[in-house]
Design a protein around this nucleic acid. Sequence first.
DNA 1: GTCTATACAGTGATAGAC
DNA 2: GTCTATCACTGTATAGAC
Lengths: 198, 198
Amino acid sequence: MPRLVTERADVLPLLAEVFREHGYEGASLQLISQATGLGKGSLYHFFPGGKAEMAAAVLAEIDDWFERELYAPLRAAEDESVAAAIDAMFAAVDAYFRGGGRVCLVGALALGAARDRFGAAIASYFARWVGALADALQRTGCDTTTATALAEATVAGIQGALVLTRALDDPAVFRRTLQALRERLPPGNPVDAGNAGH
Amino acid sequence: MPRLVTERADVLPLLAEVFREHGYEGASLQLISQATGLGKGSLYHFFPGGKAEMAAAVLAEIDDWFERELYAPLRAAEDESVAAAIDAMFAAVDAYFRGGGRVCLVGALALGAARDRFGAAIASYFARWVGALADALQRTGCDTTTATALAEATVAGIQGALVLTRALDDPAVFRRTLQALRERLPPGNPVDAGNAGH
DNA sequence: GTCTATACAGTGATAGAC
DNA sequence: GTCTATCACTGTATAGAC
């Protein structure tokens, strides 16, 4: 049986969950130590910069995941496969955020005091999301202004759905809002393949 | 230095700003003391329950304001004045959140660990917002399902716009998103009642 | 690499002088 | 009412044993 944690990369998902649940300020080293099973000494061995470096590493990993699974496919979609790429984006969002049961760490950090510390990473994450989606929308015939406005409204809608779902503690809000956002985007209304069944 | 505070009610706006800027966990009594100009002894005189009571009082005051300035007018709007009430809601939102430069404390708390402590107040704030808006929308001819979905999408869109605006540090995002949200609501852009839900 | 022990500032909260 | 002093505790971070 291999050890639970052997490399720095193995801790990142556990760290991410602690930051998501408790926020940056609320995630104490004690909580992190419990969640990872590592003592403080080991944590500082992996992350000499302490909590700030842990959060930065988590953000970088999240950014990589979204870049690979969402942004790149949106940018790479050919004209006739844009609809499928957008469907895939919504499906990935629904899965990643567990139907609204999981918070967006980047969005949560953006609202808190930690925004100043991680401002560049936060801005880049959202700017590339909006940019990749607007890029894809333009290939459906939207002009630049419309595509950007639609992309912004969609990304904002997803973030707001996470806030509202968590506030009301009702996953149905997330499902409904995501579907409404999808239906507003060209091209056309998707066949209910992506996220209709639950 | 003149005294800033003579009653408990005078502290609430200052407290609210500290919680908005630093979050619940990040708002230390030291910061609160600086922002209000009150020593810890005075703070505990006004709020024997400490930080939790301060936050609860702030939430109650915010809730009162929204109830009075937003929810009640939406509910009270007659059929022919619903459009004006909705316009007024967007104007109030824009003013209250300072064009996206100010965070929604309730939304920020909903994303953080403090949600468990203030869950009831947070849920009530958003449920009554969605409810009041859906109520008004029904008076424009929407069926219940469509009105609820539109209201949810609008409130979520506002919250998401705050996240995105703060993340990108670009007030134009807030302005554009708010305008797009307004244009989607009837009356003015009547939905085709045939296929919105299912 | 991982642990224990520890340094030291900062936390929320309380008591008492004025 | 407001302040200062102080409480017990937790925070991040470091040092050193193994």
